[in-house]
Design a protein around this nucleic acid. Structure first.
Lengths: 207, 207, 207, 207
DNA sequence: TATGAATGAGCGTTCATTCAT
DNA sequence: AATGAATGAACGCTCATTCAT
């Protein structure tokens, strides 16, 4: 692993690159992708809009990076928890789901525009981006399935559990809670929602 | 019951109107709203694009009607089941959720582009449409809550059930299953998914 | 001179033709030629706009007829007075100018939209119409010149009178008074204006 | 007097702005406002039509500037003479009117499209522009009235002069001579016309 | 390297005109 | 003869992208 020795200029470039991504996210979230002009993004940073093209290929390129960045933030926030192998008991899993719920809550609370962009804006940008988001969902389901499979084989989850279907259900609940958080970005509500989901998961709803 | 006496010409007009809505849905689903030109819609029907404007105000107007139509189809398909008052026991509710699951399955199966359009495309069209879809979600949650409240007060659902949060969770699972159906529009998968959701709801996932 | 025996149907046709010309004048005066659609004219009469084309070739045709009609009305209103040969003395001419002034006043008073259309709207419709209006002005000047020439040769006007130039001047004063009448369509003002013009003509302005 | 320090680029911008106004005037005068497309204006300058929109808001904006420019040129050409207070005797006034006549003659002679545009084209562009031109006429009359009032009170004009009406008459004669100049842009004719008008003004037409 | 002036493809929309009914 | 549904040419305007400075 060579640690690249960055010159002052190179650092500045990387910094501006990041700034552009953030500014683009701001404007996209505010006006929507199609209503946003490159000039809007540049104006927000006080740079010439020609400069934009020295950092990104085109409009499509920047939204790609914005979405990648957001997905990266989500994945990153969950990274610590992403270890199906570390879960061995129902207690572990319960705790794990609580931590994941907490992580999602923090993301949505820190910036509700993140789920708003990823779930509601991005899929409509164009077919390619739609597929990209669908893939992200599929990946999340795959990960959930890993947990469930392990739970079944270790015996702390129902042996007849439909792993694939239940993954969809669990991820759906997370999705639902994120959409709810967009409408009502409130810490308490977030917490209650997370708890309600876990109750459904572990206890069902019947009396 | 007034039977509207439609002339031949009026019937043709209504028919073309419907055809335009359907053609627009086709093209929007294929290329996305913004990449679709009025000319594309007209060309698909073999009509002049000026004709389009005899039936709809503008591009925004048609997508409004397309989405209304789709939401209408969804609501219509559920209309028979939308009677919280008719549910009195856990068995009733279980049967009810099965029927609702079936209805959603049929919708997604009949045309996966319906959930694709409503859930993934529409919210990104513009802020107004985004709000419209969010409202639709909120309405669905409200309806679910009605069922849950009744279940709690009649005693067949957990007395400590977080009605609001659980509504979000349940609707999230439906959303998740619809997204899954978009990726994999298969009757069997749909059915299994529906069953898995119900199992989570009633039995939880623990062993 | 054969007096054409008009059937009932033919009379109705002529009547509608006139109605269309009048409706067109109304709408042109209200919205301007270019902002007026054929549909606007038809709507004002409660006829289908296809019907319009059974009476006039096209939009250009109707405005031609409207303007012709207006010019015809102006010329008609002056027709009685249009007899340079009947003027033999300064008194005659003075009376003649008074009558002409009165006639113009009546026109502008009856409907200020007439000068407004002919002087201010029509010339800008297209180069051809512009020329048409210029020709009308030229014709008016020619007629004025006839009077002046006769006045000079009969000796009651200045022998060194610049007939052509003075015709321009006199017609200009009429034009000015019509424009003033558009701004302020008032009988008294009209009358005073007419008098002022005659005073300038006959007495000049010096003390 | 601030001397604005213009960079080379800024000068070029201003220059192009002027060029666009002039090109627009050319095309408007040739084809009329409504028959002129932005593309026509751009083509005449050999610039892309998108460039046009970097300098003017829209089509309406450019014609506004064109007309302003022309009115400005007219007013500017008369500016030296616009001093009613400097006129104290009939001789002064006679000289003044001669100078004004000369100025108008020069304008019309330099470019007969100037009066053509202001008097014949502009009023028909739309109601707002129509009013603008009418206001211009009214202003001109007001100025003329100032001269006449002073002349009456100083005693070198008829005491019973109808100031308002005579202003209309005088401005009408100018208008008429400008229209004549459009039809026949000739220096000699212009000069004769100006003289004829003054003769009418001061001496009347009677023998 | 940063800039922003220039560009033109592309699209939404209008409306005069035609013609089948 | 009257209608109005259909049509498509035409045009105003936007904005992503390029490139000379």
């Amino acid at each position: 692993m060579t640690s690249p020795p960055l010159t002052r200029a190179e650092q500045k470039k990387l910094e501006l690159r990041r700034d552009i991504i953030e500014a683009a996210f701001d404007v996209f979230a505010e006006k929507g992708y199609h209503a946003t002009g490159i000039a809007d993004i540049a104006a927000r940073l006080g740079i010439g809009h020609g400069t934009f093209y020295r950092y990104f290929e085109n409009k499509r390129d920047i939204v790609e990076h914005v979405v990648d960045d957001l997905i990266g933030r989500i994945v990153g926030a969950l990274a610590d928890e992403n270890a199906p192998d570390a879960v061995d008991t129902l207690e572990d899993y319960r705790a794990q789901t609580a931590r994941i719920g907490l992580a999602f809550g923090r993301i949505a609370l820190a910036d509700p525009r993140i789920p708003q962009m990823v779930i509601l804006q991005a899929p409509g940008i164009d077919p390619a981006m739609g597929e990209r988001i669908q893939d992200f969902f599929a990946t999340a389901e795959g990960l959930t399935a890993k947990y469930l499979e392990r739970g079944v084989s270790l015996g702390y989850l129902r042996p007849d559990l439909d792993v694939a279907g239940t993954s969809v259900a669990i991820n759906g609940m997370i999705l639902g809670s994120l959409l709810a958080a967009i409408r009502n970005p409130d810490a308490g509500a977030q917490e209650r929602l997370s708890e309600a989901i876990r109750r459904v998961m572990y206890d069902g709803i019947s009396a």
